[in-house]
């Protein structure tokens, strides 16, 4: 375990295990980047195809795939739209879910268990069959053609996050909130002042997931928006795909650019898992 700082051998083993596992984890990315630098004729040809040292390296390197991919889709416009949706969704989903989860985890009220199961149940019905009535609801509300169907629901809590945060709140030690209650704080104050800061790693996780989902979602925008100026990056990627005529190298160039922001975001967000919180005590 991490507390065992004296022996070096376990650490060496950890490194070896991690490196061995990292190779397969990296393969999709490596292939993606390699493909993004190949000419279309290089990708699937019998001599140049497959995943071996010989075939993975582009020969020659075709850098122009990147500017071409950038040119093919209105990147700036799509990026702006994507970020707009991400912002509202992350803020909305994390705040509302944190609040609802606190209710389920830390408070007692009538019908709590039943309502919680109902919430879990909303995730168990395949979206394929609710798609039409959901669409009908948004159309009835007059939201069709706007971003509202893609942002407003986030403010009403996401069952996945609510469940996750409930699990976290339940494990947090009760003494702090008990102390606050003794000082006369009401539940809202305890939630905002005590619980939210304590749950930071879990909240970061939720924010990250929400960002990722919205970033990758092209069907939502496609379904509710009809104006090409309002689409997102994930929709833009679709332009390189087609029956009998996908443009692999450009698709992979665009995809590489597409995942970079998430990569950077994750790299920084995961610090909050390392640092933990002083009160619960990181193990180091």
């Amino acid at each position: 375990m991490s507390t065992d700082n004296r022996s070096r051998l376990p650490k060496l083993f950890t490194h070896i295990a991690l490196i061995l596992l990292a190779v397969p984890a990296l393969l999709p990315l490596i292939w993606m980047v390699a493909t993004s630098l190949k000419a279309d004729t290089q990708i699937f040809g019998s001599e140049t195809a497959g995943v071996t040292m010989k075939t993975i390296v582009p020969h020659p390197f075709v850098w122009k795939n990147y500017p071409e991919a950038l040119h093919a889709i209105p990147m700036v416009m799509y990026l702006r739209n994507t970020l707009k949706l991400c912002l509202f969704n992350v803020v909305g989903a994390v705040l509302s879910s944190a609040m609802v989860a606190y209710g389920f985890a830390r408070l007692e009220f009538k019908g709590k268990d039943v309502l919680f199961m109902v919430m879990i149940a909303t995730m168990a019905l395949p979206a394929q069959v609710t798609m039409i009535p959901v669409f009908v609801v948004f159309r009835w509300l007059g939201w069709y053609g706007t971003y509202l169907p893609l942002t407003v629901p986030a403010f009403f809590g996401n069952p996945f996050f609510i469940f996750l945060l409930t699990q976290f709140y339940k494990t947090l030690p009760g003494d702090l909130s008990e102390a606050a209650r003794m000082d006369g704080a009401n539940e809202w104050t305890i939630f905002a002042r005590v619980m939210l800061p304590l749950a930071r790693p879990a909240l970061t996780t939720c924010a990250l997931f929400q960002f990722l989902w919205v970033w990758n979602d092209f069907f939502g925008p496609l379904l509710y928006i009809n104006d090409v100026h309002k689409y997102t990056l994930a929709y833009g990627l679709q332009q390189f795909l087609s029956n009998h005529g996908a443009e692999w190298s450009r698709l992979m160039a665009a995809s590489t650019l597409f995942i970079m922001p998430i990569l950077i975001l994750f790299f920084f967000a995961q610090r909050s898992f390392i640092e933990g919180i002083a009160t619960t005590g990181g193990k180091n």
């Binding site: 596992l21 999709p28 990315l29 795909l241 995942i259 998430i262 994750f266 790299f267």
Partner: peptide
């Protein structure tokens, strides 16, 4: 390491 292991879940499905 963490970033590497998270990678497969962000690479687009077509690539994977």
């Amino acid at each position: 390491y963490r970033t590497i292991f998270f990678l497969p879940s962000i690479v687009p499905t077509v690539a994977t």
